[in-house]
Design a protein around this nucleic acid. Structure first.
Length: 473
RNA sequence: GCGCCCGUAGCUCAGUUGGAUAGAGCAUCUGCCUUCUAAGCAGAGGGUCUUGCGUUCAAAUCGCAACGGGCGUACCA
């Protein structure tokens, strides 16, 4: 595998959770896909700037502020900040539906916040801080980090200028009291104008995204910006990209919306709890680890508890990640615990097992056979293909680089998943048919080399997908 | 209405820069553990690739149309 000859700077926009709300299943595809693409591009030699565009500004803060001031429960805020903020929001939201005065009060809080009121800003900062620490806990559990976390609020001061600029350049014009961009020359968008300033003077997400885009282009000078979001936002990004190109026609940046489908429950409808609530990401990961622990304990009860728990963590989290990256990105997929934690089929446990089996061979080679294998001394010409399985495996190994390029080109990690599944299958076949440690030289060295290369590729591939590997399971 | 996506084995899905007998897992059936982890391997059965027309030496794949489903579509993001 070679690094790319012409490294590109790529901005990756993904995850983007909202302040004062728990991260839930709706965030996992963006988060996992985005972080996978981020690792992949770094691996093949591109420069990646990952930016978490968190939802830290917007109309919901009027209700939140009102709730915070009137109904805050300090104790539960300490115990479960997100839960408490969520409770406050729901409480006020329900009250606004019955009482117009409450709605007015919430609006007033929002106006104060936007005008820079010191008290409201301070509360807002606390809400952001509390939320961010919850996000960090989850990101660390998932092994994900960002280069930047510049939320919507970061661009507040630029929004007015964006609209002014678009007005003076005659890209936007007044319509029904709002400022709007029309796309009459583009048949696809002709009946879908984009509002950049609402009738009440407020800005919306198109405006924020334009300001964000301008900032990124100006400060990071990227060759590409990839937005990893839900497929339902296709129209929005078409509009924003089109406006941006009219606005900054000279910017040579490739803008791409990497969209994905919905996660469905077993009933084929969007994945929810039985009572219709969204499923919290933390609960989902807990359940994954619990289920994995039950299986590991059943299969391998003799391992110490700590070891089993660690295996369960890697397998459980890995299973969720793998199940999310395996389906073709644009299609909806059904979330299914039994399937993702199965040992048969294209699953994380199957791949991790293949890796652990190889590692076991090398442990044995040292412990029982006192055989030292030096990975540094590998030469391709020491490979012997006496059994057909060896040749098939070797051929597959050498196509790894091409696969990575293809995955990067199309932003489709499922290609890598399928490649690794094939690899693990070919290895399993080799493993059954070709004894390694009991072979004699020079076959033994050749087979150990194949094992080593398989482990290396499996590990690189799995790590690119975001999975940890295990020495034993 | 318009736009985007989808329709492949009983089920869940791969296969989308056109290429040989269309693949996997589950489910059903048959073998293989005193041999490097059987969380595995070897094998069997199961498909008019929604339908029709077209392009091509060649179509699950490209084009058009129909039927069926999901989503989006001016002041949420």
């Amino acid at each position: 595998m070679r690094k790319t000859q012409s490294p590109q700077t790529i901005v990756l926009d993904f995850s983007s959770p909202n302040i004062a709300k728990p991260m839930h299943v709706g965030h996992i595809r963006s988060t996992l896909l985005g972080s996978c693409l981020s690792r992949l591009h770094r691996l093949i030699g591109n420069k990646v700037i990952s930016d978490n565009h968190i939802g830290d500004w917007g109309t919901q803060f009027g209700k939140l502020l009102l709730g915070w001031k009137k109904h805050l429960d300090e104790a539960s805020l300490k115990q479960d900040p997100i839960g408490e903020m969520e409770r406050l929001y729901k409480l006020v939201n329900a009250a606004t539906e019955e009482d117009e005065a409450v709605l007015e009060a919430a609006r007033a809080e929002l106006v104060k916040l936007q005008a820079g009121d010191a008290e409201n800003l301070e509360i807002w900062r606390q809400m952001v801080k509390l939320s961010q620490s919850q996000f960090d806990t989850l990101y660390s559990r998932l092994g994900i980090s960002f280069d930047y976390t510049l939320g919507e609020s970061f661009y507040n001061d630029n929004l007015k200028g964006v609209v002014e600029d678009l007005k003076t350049k005659a890209i936007a014009r007044e319509s029904e009291g709002a400022y709007v961009v029309f796309f009459d020359n583009i048949p696809e968008l002709a009946s879908n104008p984009a509002i950049i300033q609402k009738r009440d003077g407020a800005f919306n997400y198109a405006t924020t995204d334009l300001a964000t885009l301008a900032y990124r282009v100006e400060n990071w000078k990227p060759d590409q910006i990839l937005y990893v979001t839900d497929g339902r936002q296709q129209l929005h990004f078409k509009q924003v990209f089109t406006i941006f190109n009219r606005w900054k026609g000279n910017a040579k940046v490739k803008l791409e919306h990497i969209w994905f489908g919905t996660i469905l429950g077993g009933d084929g409808k969007p994945f929810k709890t039985r009572s219709g609530e969204v499923i919290k990401l933390s609960d989902l990961l807990d359940e994954a680890e619990e289920r994995a622990l039950a299986v590991v304990s059943e299969k391998n009860p003799d391992l110490p508890e700590d070891t089993r728990k660690n295996i369960a963590r890697v397998v459980g989290i890995g299973a969720v990640k793998y199940a999310d990256l395996l389906p073709s990105r644009q299609s909806d997929y059904q979330f299914n615990w039994d399937k993702m934690l199965a040992f048969n089929g294209n699953t994380a446990p199957y791949l991790l097992y293949a890796y652990a089996r190889i590692r076991s061979i090398f442990r044995k080679s040292q412990e029982e056979f006192s055989y030292s294998f030096e990975p540094d001394s590998i030469e391709e010409n020491q490979l012997l293909f006496t059994a057909p399985q060896e040749l098939t495996l070797a051929k597959h190994l050498f196509s790894f680089g091409i696969i990575l390029e293809q995955v990067a080109e199309d932003s489709r990690p499922n290609i890598l998943c399928n490649y690794l599944y094939d690899l693990a299958g070919l290895f399993a076949s080799f493993y059954e048919n070709c004894p390694v440690l009991k072979a004699s030289e020079p076959e033994k060295l050749s087979r150990l080399t194949l094992c080593h290369l398989t482990a290396k590729v499996l590990r690189m591939g799995l790590e690119t997908l975001g999975l940890e590997t295990l020495e034993e399971m």
